[in-house]
Amino acid sequence: MNIFRFAGDMTHLISILILLLKIYATKSCAGISLKTQELYALVFLTRYLDLFTDYVSLYNSVMKIVFIASSLAIVWCMRRHPLVRRSYDKDLDTFRHQYVVLACFVLALVLHERFTFQEVFWAFSIYLEAVAILPQLVLLQRSGNVDNLTGQYVLFLGAYRGLYIINWIYRYFTEDHFARWIACVSGLIQTALYADFFYYYYLSRIKQDTIMRL
């Protein structure tokens, strides 16, 4: 465990807590893509299949349970909570994420570290995480306004990805056997997606500011 990875896990946890807090405090999920949240729940469920078979460390097991529970809690709130579900932008959140799930699964059947049930689903979860933010980015572009909590949510997710890339660079130089190409390449693609979002987000913010100032 190195400081970059720990900081990455913490910013990832913070991003999920921001979302839970926003939904709990405002009893609203306006501007949040349910499809992205479902994809993240699927990412955690398929990645942590080894929760009961491989014990890495207490920290590792606790965090896996926290991620699975919190992502399912968000999906449950957005689908079942009587107050929250009313504010869901159903007609804006129209990204056809089932195709993304299928594409990632096919890719995992082709590209994986070992052809075992657990490894194929692990690779699937890595690919899916890279594109899980797409419905949320589409929703933000459609709804036009990026309210600051959702903006912060994506900001912390971007920070988590960036810190993980530094973690991989650090591990590459400090450990001899470190070679995790699937996670690294997929993580780079995911981070590129976030970079694109930040470019768009801040560009539109600047445009809004200049319009306000004019």
Partner: peptide, 10 residues
Amino acid sequence: SEKDAAHDEL
């Protein structure tokens, strides 16, 4: 201590 499991990252 962390066993070097196949995937020790979250």
